[in-house]
Write a protein that binds this DNA or RNA. Sequence first.
DNA 1: ATTATGACGGAAG
DNA 2: GCTTCCGCCATAA
Length: 117
Amino acid sequence: MSKQVTVSPIEKIWFIVNLIPKGYVCSYGKVADLAGLPGRARYVSTALKRAPKEMTLPWHRVVNSQGKISFESNTQAYQNQMERLRLDGVEVNRGKILLSQYEWKPDLATLMFEIPF
DNA sequence: ATTATGACGGAAG
DNA sequence: GCTTCCGCCATAA
């Protein structure tokens, strides 16, 4: 029998965010769902904030359900995320990302075999 | 225990 | 497209 490994909620969130491919984005709510934590979109933002600085995490690929960056537009963080998305090839027009074009849709194989929880 | 605070989401005006 | 309001839930005080 395989051993039961327990993964903490925050680790599940980090794991899912790491799966978001370059060139795509995913909403806080969707990340929560994929992590098996429905209804906890706000916790995803908490988890990203709490990630150790040395951890390389594509946090910039997480946007809100409207396809907008969740920082206030006059902040450094906003500009930072904007630039990282640009480097990913994701275009932000008038502060908005076209989800119909850039939203990450994990394929079945990813859902079944790459998520160990 | 209670209250306040968010990198949220969705409905309503 | 706004903006406001409310439900949501983990943390911190």
